[in-house]
Design a protein around this nucleic acid. Sequence first.
DNA 1: TAAGTTATACTGACTGGTTAGTTGGGTCAC
DNA 2: GTGACCCAACTAACCAGTCAGTATAACTTA
Lengths: 232, 232
Amino acid sequence: MVEESSKSPDVLSSIMDAAIKNFAEKGYEGARVDEIARDANVNKATIYYHIGGKEALYKAVLSRVLTSGADMIVENVGKASTPEEKVAAYVDTILNGVLAGREDFTRIMMREMAGGGADIPHDVLDNMMRKILGTAVGLVSVGVEQGKLAPASPILIHMMIVGGIAFMRATEGLRAKHQGATMELDPRIVNEMKSGLSDQITKILLHGLTLREERKMNPTGESSGVGKQQKP
Amino acid sequence: MVEESSKSPDVLSSIMDAAIKNFAEKGYEGARVDEIARDANVNKATIYYHIGGKEALYKAVLSRVLTSGADMIVENVGKASTPEEKVAAYVDTILNGVLAGREDFTRIMMREMAGGGADIPHDVLDNMMRKILGTAVGLVSVGVEQGKLAPASPILIHMMIVGGIAFMRATEGLRAKHQGATMELDPRIVNEMKSGLSDQITKILLHGLTLREERKMNPTGESSGVGKQQKP
DNA sequence: TAAGTTATACTGACTGGTTAGTTGGGTCAC
DNA sequence: GTGACCCAACTAACCAGTCAGTATAACTTA
């Protein structure tokens, strides 16, 4: 009689959420449709009614995961003016925009890459490649032309960013348990590690590790005057 | 008793090889014991006789994958003298020593990280953490103390190397098909991309992307006319 | 507007193919 | 013969996908 919930609040998104969680934790083969249904508080057949099947569900999840970030990167990098700022924007957008609070996305992406990306729908892949890698290519190209960036493979840059972030994220739990390797660290390093991951990556990418000559590092950290070097 | 494998040519290693291949391609859940047995030209029960089961087989594979490289890194980095050479040795060992011709290892590692590394046996993980990360920590620490390297998180450095390599490797097939994003690249970038991945990564890590004033980058080798720029 | 019809959203119970693991027996070197 | 090594065939469980059925909203028509 009285409707506790006339229409379901949003069956589809609860299915998607549960699917993302399960696929992220256990991978495509490891995830169970029954469990996804249970997590979504939905009858299994409902999933088949709405989406079609396990594979269709996974493809839907993949599209959502992979599509969501591309435009954000294009936009934010576009806003930045100098090549250096563009690199920073690139890193920052991936870390704090695309992947912020979405460990699940990272995990699914890692698994998908491990599998060679065979399951990624072609149009999604195409779109992603064009936008994200295109942005990276443009960024480096302009920087090189302007004499501001050293020539480097934009794809490699992209992969070092994404790969670095993904591996850092994925191993967070692991490292928390096994922090035996922390050993005695130089206080300057400890300090540096306190700044945000985005800043750290940007700094490494822009300035590298080599210190030239006698230039003292700003010991208080923060991304201030780190990359200032004189002649070799 | 006598030797390890007295009888068959080498049943155990053919099982392991087949297992590595299958786990790499399909993950733990996706791999089929029957198929591993078939690939190894062995009856399925033989696997159970020698190893015990699917999970034990996977653990064995994991140990082999993860253990194999640690000592190599420690040794090669130890041989190098300056911090810069150590960084180069670190990158080069991971790429050309640990992972050379072993895409399977990379894939298994990626999946395992995506899953949070829950399956990695504790002693293996401990050993790996101590050796590999310990080496990275030592490397950066010494470099910083000597005033030759900028302070940076050794873990992040490690993850950018491994993550970058893993993602580059994993997406090779993918990128070959979708090379639409290659666009018009500056010839200097194209040239840079011709040098080995190990050199490229080392260069980025050591020198970064930023070009300072009128200074040549001192390219590691071939990539000659790289650093010639005017001011903007 | 009441009765009849169709469309949409969902469910509980079932099924059949797949797959990890077992069993009991066979071979061969010593 | 005896024990390490290997096999073909079997089994029990699991799990993706199906189906017949319920409920209700949404039209249709007389």
